[in-house]
Simulated assay, not measured.
Amino acid sequence: MEKQAKWDFSETNLANFGSNIEKEAHYQAGAQEQAWADPATKVGIEAGLWVWRIEKFTVKAWPKNKYGEFYSGDSYIVLHSYKKNKDSEALAHDIHFWLGLDSSQDEIGTAAYKTVELDDFLGTSPVQYREVQDNESTLFITYFPHFRVEEGGISSGFNHHSPKEYRHRLLKIKLIKRTVVVREVPKDYTSLNSGDVFVLDTGVILYQLNGKNSHGVEKVKAAEFVQAVESERSGLAKTIVIDEGDREMPKFWEALGSSGPIKPASEDKDSDIANIPKKLFRVSDSSGSLTFTEESGPISLSRFDTNDVFVFDAIHTVFIWIGLKSTVKEKKYSLQYAQEYIKKFNRPAHTPITRIMEGGENEFFLKSFEEKTI
């Protein structure tokens, strides 16, 4: 399976989400997928978190001790099941398919298709999310106490090496909401900012660079991370802690291989999104032809009409809300309209897209009416 340097995620989609798929056929296909159909997995039976990796067109359970660890060359399916009402045993489900930027089109397609199968297996009630590496939704990140993305993947034969052979990398440690996120970033000074902590891993020496405006918890988690790496390498690696601007900065620049001004925290792409106005669009064929029109006025849940489909740009996510009485045509083309909207209004192509059925609104969706930023 040939890897692509970067896939065009603006052209990927939710693989028939919301269209009139042959539900019974999909249920049978989903029921045959042993990754979740085996009663021992407890999928659909109890609350919890499940992660699967796509490996050569198949769905493989990801080890629980690796939950929160992802590789850029892979695609994953993540299921979060929970009790929506404490007074009821009924479960609600969030299904995410996570796409690494170096994942193959085959893996991406398999992840999307298998997500549809899992949706049907659970009764077509889950909320479904497309997650793109480096631009994950806040909800997705908060599932994991630690979130980490590294290069490599199933088809690259990625393995951890001994310290002297270990691949040099630059890692960014950032606090997003209540989760500390660890991402591998390009090994260049332009990846740095004053608001975060960075770890430059050269194999034998780990450089922890504390941005002058970084959070204390980021420094603590970075320290925990390098200690874990040192332990993993049997104590052969050591760590040098450097505060931005101190006299040991030349050591860091030399190890990094480039140097230059460190941008302020406000210029970091992971910082809170500016106060962009939210938008609501209606997808309807009530006039005899399919239209996509912007709704004016304040946006609230009461504006959503059961007879139509709506595209809601909540800034951090573009939601596709499917009315229970919407037509097949409205459902079928809603994703296309959502993607065209993202392009036309110059929203980032990696903006998460979430499909949600009327009656299945979760807290993440409902809070989007009041929040201004992620």
Rank of each mutant, 00 (worst) to 15 (best):
Q208E: 13
K343H: 11
Y129Q: 04
Q128E: 05
A228R: 13
Y166I: 07
L14R: 09
E358H: 01
D272P: 13
E131A: 11
A111E: 07
A15L: 08
E244Y: 03
K263F: 02
E363T: 13
G153H: 01
K263G: 04
A274M: 10
N65M: 03
A25L: 07
E330G: 14
S266I: 09
V181N: 08
V181A: 13
K344F: 10
L118E: 12
K42A: 09
V149R: 03
T138K: 11
E107T: 06
Q32K: 12
G44E: 10
S191Y: 00
A237Q: 05
I273L: 15
A314I: 02
L79R: 00
E46W: 03
P39Q: 08
V59N: 01
E224K: 14
V283R: 06
E117Q: 14
D305I: 10
A222V: 00
E295T: 11
S194C: 04
D285S: 15
K221C: 09
R183V: 07
Q34E: 14
V180I: 05
F252D: 01
E230T: 10
L122T: 04
E107I: 00
K3V: 07
R233S: 11
P163M: 05
A222W: 02
E371D: 10
K332I: 07
N213I: 06
K83H: 14
N307Q: 13
R178T: 05
F97N: 00
A112Q: 00
F9G: 07
K219D: 04
L200A: 10
K64M: 09
D270V: 01
N307S: 15
D272E: 08
M1F: 10
T142A: 09
D94P: 06
T291S: 14
K278M: 02
L209N: 11
V311A: 02
E69Y: 03
A90C: 07
D120G: 07
L118P: 00
D38A: 13
K329Y: 07
L171Y: 04
A47C: 08
K343E: 13
S72T: 06
S289A: 12
P63A: 11
F140L: 14
T124H: 06
F198A: 12
S258K: 01
G203V: 01
H316A: 14
K23G: 14
A111Y: 01
K212T: 08
S326D: 10
E218M: 06
E55K: 04
S258H: 00
E131P: 00
Y113G: 09
A37T: 09
T202P: 06
G109K: 07
V51Y: 02
A90L: 09
T317C: 11
